[in-house]
Amino acid sequence: MPGKNNSVPKVQRFVAILWPSFVVSGIATVLFFTAFDPDEVIGCVGGWDISRMGYYSVGFFLFWLLTSLNSVLTCYFLKPCSKS
């Protein structure tokens, strides 16, 4: 695997990171915004003047950022340590 790792096409690595995180962030977005109405939450602390649709979208991409970070770390730790 270590030697072969470079032969994995770049596209596959991107998809392996972005695709599962996309799916999970979709689920997370639904659960989160079912429990919390952005208008009410933001109304308490004061926020930007954007629509609910905007909050949902921003929320989705924030989740996607976090979940892909997770995938990146998983991929990173999958690499075996170099044996010196």
């Binding site: 072969k4 032969s7 994995v8 096409p9 596209v11 596959q12 998809v15």
Partner: peptide, 9 residues
């Protein structure tokens, strides 16, 4: 299946 096949050109 060797991984190269996945997403290979």
């Amino acid at each position: 299946t060797p991984v190269e096949e996945v997403y290979a050109k």
